Simulated scan of single mutants.
Amino acid sequence: MANPVVVGVDGSSSSLHAVEVAAVEAGLRGVGLRLVHAFGWPSMRPPAGGPLWSPAAAGVRELVDGTLVEAEERARAAAPHIEVAREVTVGEPLMVLEIESRTASLVVVGSRGLGAFGSLLLGSTAVHLAAHARCPVLVVRGRPDPSGPVLLAVDGSAAGAKAVEFAFAEAFARGADLVALHVWNAWSERAYEGPGDPLNVVVDVERLREEEQRVLDETVAPARTRRPGVTVERRLVRSRVRPALIEASEEAQLVVAGARGRGGFSGLLLGSVSQALLHHAHCPVAVVRGGEGDS
Rank of each mutant, 00 (worst) to 15 (best):
I99D: 15
M95V: 14
V90I: 15
T89G: 02
A78P: 15
T89Q: 09
T103S: 11
V107T: 13
E83P: 01
M95F: 08
A77C: 04
S101N: 05
E92W: 00
A85H: 12
E92R: 03
V88R: 02
V107E: 09
V84Y: 04
V90L: 10
L106S: 05
S101Q: 08
A79D: 05
I82T: 07
G91W: 02
V108G: 05
V107L: 15
T103F: 06
T103N: 07
R86N: 06
L97R: 13
A75W: 10
A104S: 10
I99V: 13
A79F: 03
L106H: 11
A75C: 10
A85K: 11
L94P: 00
I82M: 13
R86A: 11
G91K: 04
P80R: 08
G91R: 03
L94F: 00
E98M: 14
G91S: 02
G110A: 09
A75K: 05
V84R: 04
G110N: 06
V96Y: 01
A104W: 10
P80M: 05
A85W: 01
L97F: 13
E98T: 14
E100N: 01
S101P: 09
V88D: 00
E87D: 14
V109K: 12
A77P: 03
H81M: 05
S111T: 10
V90H: 06
R86S: 12
E83A: 15
V96D: 01
E100L: 01
L97Y: 10
I99Y: 03
T103K: 03
T89M: 07
P93S: 07
P93V: 11
V96S: 01
V109A: 15
